[in-house]
Design a protein around this nucleic acid. Structure first.
Lengths: 152, 152
DNA sequence: TGGGCTTTCATAAGTGCGTGATATAAAAAT
DNA sequence: ATTTTTATATCACGCACTTATGAAAGCCCA
């Protein structure tokens, strides 16, 4: 470990807090019809439109065959559909369907309701702090999206 | 949906932000030796000491056979060990080992380093907001720990 | 033009980690 | 002393991933 790898105490505290928080969020998500990768992929399709299959597996952190299989499952359940690119016979264009959007919405609603029940028990100051941090978290997410998916 | 189930716009924003953030955190965790449940269970054993097997599966949100198998795997890898309760012949007391603590630490370090690399690119104000929100997240986690694990 | 490399997606076989149903043994209850 | 309940394990099965491999379309260049 080189000096530049040493992290500050502050970052340590953040990482510890996030670790705990991650498990809270995980438990908050009702065991639903969608796997983690399925939900994340559908959300991506919802947020930024149709994608080629090869553009999906890397950002989702799974292998290409895994993505092929996931899309097959999603297609079978009617949550996404395959299309073709007229300019490239190899490509498969994946699009979210209305049913897919509905599934994402259901998942989000379930989590939101559970979270909401907790939030109302929280002191107002904590609630405010959480609202205040959202833009920062958003930027943190954007940063990560740009990064090379890390060297594992 | 009854009126009391309607959530505020603020809560909606929080849930949306958390949803995105959850995926960021998920990608931040290097695909490691530990499954999500394994890591969470080991962390619980580290944080609050030995537990009976039956005390573990519910809070981790998995079935009892899943926990039995998880503990078997962890034991095989030397990360946890089974013991017995002198007062109750049925019980199995699960304890984390030093190797288990080390595995948790490795996982935490990996995530911390990746997170740290992102954090230093973030504006100072965002960094500060994240530090400021940690106690609130901690209390949110405590709240959830008390709750009945929800009605699925 | 056509032969070879590259890119894109699919298929196959194997593994990890979960599920529900059920068995077994110890404790508690009647 | 049975019966019932509680704690754990075992079994059969399925989903979602992995690596290795295959096949078809696009690209490159003599």
């Amino acid at each position: 470990m080189r000096d530049t790898d040493i992290v500050s105490d502050e970052d340590l505290a953040i990482a510890g807090g996030f670790e705990r928080f991650y498990e809270v969020l995980r438990r908050l998500t009702p065991r639903s019809e969608l796997s983690l990768t399925a939900a994340s992929t559908l959300r991506r399709l919802e947020r930024s439109g149709p994608h080629r299959l090869c553009e999906l597996h890397a950002p989702e952190g799974v292998s290409q065959p895994a993505m092929t299989q996931l899309i097959t499952r999603l297609e079978k359940e009617g949550l996404a559909k395959r299309g073709s690119d007229p300019d490239d016979g190899r490509a498969v264009i994946v699009t979210i369907t209305d049913a897919g959007r509905a599934a994402v919405a259901r998942r989000r609603d379930g989590r939101t309701r559970a979270l909401s029940a907790l939030l109302e028990q929280l002191p107002a100051a904590d609630h405010a702090a959480i609202v205040a941090v959202l833009p920062a978290l958003e930027r943190l997410g954007d940063l990560m999206a740009e990064q090379p998916p890390s060297e594992k």
